[in-house]
Amino acid sequence: MTGEPPVTTPKAAYPPGDLAIWFFIFAELTAFFALFVSYAVSYRGHYDLFATMQQTLDPEWGAVNTVLLLVGSWAVARGVVAAESLPQQKAARPVGAWLLVATLCGVGFLVSKGMEYAAKYRAGIDLDTNLFYTFYYSLTAFHAMHVLLGVVILTIVTAKAARGAYHMGATVGIETAASYWHMVDLVWLILFPLLYLIRLPA
C-alpha cells in the first residue's frame, strides 16, 4: 500500500446540461402530447377523411427529414463526446466540426420541409383544405419552428466551439444544446409515422 488516496472519476452531471432546459423540454413535450391526442381523437371522429388524406402525403419527404434529424442528432452526440474527452487545446476543431454537421442537417430539414410545403401549395392544398391538412400544417409547422430554434442554438454553440469554449470539464453549454436537439428529433420520430404511415383504428 502506498498510502495515496484512490483516484476517483467525477460523475457526469445528470440530467446533462442546464437544468432550465429540462423544464423547457418538459413543457414542449407536454404541448406536443396534447396536439397528438387531439389529432388521434379527430382521426377517429373523421376516419374516412383522415385515412384518405393521409394517403396524399409523400412518405419519401418524411423519410428524408427523418434521416437528416437522425444524422444531426448523431453528430451532436459525437460533438458532446469529443468535448468531454479532449482538453481545450485539442477540442475546438473536432467539436466545432461535429456541431457544424448537425447545424447543416437542421438547415437541410427546413429546406426539405419548405419544398414539401411548396409542392402542396402548388397542388392547391393549404391549411384550410380540410381538417386533416389543418392538423398536418399545424403539427409540422410547430415542429419546424422548434427545428429553426435548434438551428439557431446550434449555430451559436458551433461558433463558441470554434473558439474552444467546449472541452473536458466545460461541457454544460454543448450538453444543453444537445438535449434540446434530441427532443426535436424525438418529437419528429413520433410525428412522422403518426402523420405519414400509421392508420389509426376507427
Results as ranks from 00 to 15, higher is better:
5 P>S: 13
14 Y>T: 07
14 Y>I: 03
19 L>H: 12
25 I>H: 05
28 E>K: 02
30 T>W: 02
32 F>V: 06
35 L>S: 07
39 Y>L: 07
40 A>D: 03
43 Y>N: 10
47 Y>S: 09
48 D>E: 15
49 L>T: 10
55 Q>G: 05
56 T>A: 05
58 D>C: 02
60 E>H: 06
66 T>I: 11
68 L>V: 14
70 L>V: 10
71 V>E: 07
72 G>V: 14
74 W>N: 04
77 A>E: 06
81 V>P: 00
82 A>I: 03
86 L>H: 06
88 Q>V: 04
90 K>E: 15
92 A>N: 09
94 P>H: 05
104 L>S: 12
106 G>P: 10
107 V>N: 12
112 S>E: 08
117 Y>R: 02
119 A>W: 03
120 K>S: 01
121 Y>A: 02
125 I>T: 11
127 L>Q: 04
134 T>M: 06
136 Y>W: 12
138 S>T: 13
141 A>D: 08
141 A>R: 00
146 H>N: 04
148 L>F: 13
154 L>F: 14
155 T>Y: 03
160 K>F: 09
160 K>G: 00
161 A>F: 08
163 R>Y: 01
163 R>V: 01
167 H>F: 15
171 T>P: 00
172 V>E: 14
172 V>A: 11
174 I>P: 00
178 A>F: 01
182 H>S: 13
184 V>H: 14
184 V>Q: 12
189 L>V: 11
193 P>C: 11
195 L>M: 14
196 Y>F: 15
197 L>W: 15
199 R>Y: 06
